[in-house]
């Protein structure tokens, strides 16, 4: 009984952490999209130098642990150039940079799976390459990217718990804080796990809906 009361009492506090968690994940997905899409376009259509530079960027962010990136940016880079941002924002930016590397590879794969003939057809009609890419390639590639994006969302959501290490007041941090005060470790961590699970499910469901909503009639990707 006491356990239930403790959980209920602290629930609003922990639930407030969901906003921070969502801020981290949605912010990071957004930053990752804004950077990742141009990276993908550059990697497919860019010059040799552009492609090399992008590959290096992607290697770096895929090759270094997220936790290390968080420390590197928060205590290192942002400190060095004396930019003072709150923990959540720094975490959001770092997660976003890492995600941009992964998202660029999702988009690159989808762009490359659109038949080259469609770009040729655009050119043959007198459209510029940038017009063709924007109005022919990307609308199809982005549709194909939704499943990969959904995967990226659920991975980011769980990576966001790492920001606890910097002290970002997300679900993880708040749960840990309450648990270490009340000693109700098991029920509180189960509650937190359940929250993460719900947020994952909601996001994946939403993306699944979008996938169906934007599906092209009669069109199935041949395996």
């Amino acid at each position: 009984m006491q356990t239930i009361i403790t959980i209920l009492e602290n629930m609003p506090y922990i639930l407030m952490g969901s906003f921070i968690t969502l801020y981290l994940v949605i912010g990071a997905l957004f930053i990752g999209f804004i950077i990742g899409l141009p990276l993908a376009i550059g990697q497919v259509y860019g010059s040799r130098i552009t492609r090399l530079a992008i590959s290096l960027y992607v290697w770096f962010f895929r090759g270094v642990p997220i936790l290390l990136l968080l420390f590197l940016f928060y205590f290192g880079i942002f400190n060095l150039i004396s930019i003072n941002l709150d923990v959540a924002t720094v975490s959001c930016i770092v997660l976003g940079l890492a995600s941009s590397a992964y998202q660029s590879q999702i988009f690159r794969g989808s762009i490359q799976s659109i038949p080259y003939g469609q770009l040729k057809a655009g050119r043959a009609l007198g459209m510029t390459d940038s017009q063709s890419i924007r109005s022919i390639i990307l609308p199809q590639a982005l549709r194909l990217s939704i499943p990969g994006w959904s995967n990226e969302y659920s991975i980011l959501l769980k990576d966001s718990a790492l920001c606890f290490a910097l002290g970002a007041p997300d679900i993880m941090a708040r749960t840990h804080f309450v648990a270490s005060r009340t000693y109700e470790y098991l029920p509180l961590y189960i509650t937190a796990a359940f929250l993460y699970f719900l947020i994952t499910l909601a996001g994946v469901r939403l993306l699944r809906y979008l996938e169906r909503r934007f599906a092209i009639a009669g069109y199935t990707l041949s395996a």
Binding site: P115, G117, Q118, K120, A121, G122, R123, A124, L125, G126, M127, T128, I136, P139, Q140, R143, I216, Y219
Partner: peptide, 24 residues
């Protein structure tokens, strides 16, 4: 010259063997 190429292509229509319609 890209403008010159676009001018050429606007005036020369092309039909491909496998259609190359925009699927979306």
């Amino acid at each position: 010259n890209n403008a010159s190429l676009c001018h050429l292509r606007q005036n020369v229509g092309m039909i491909f063997q496998d259609f190359n319609l925009f699927d979306h």
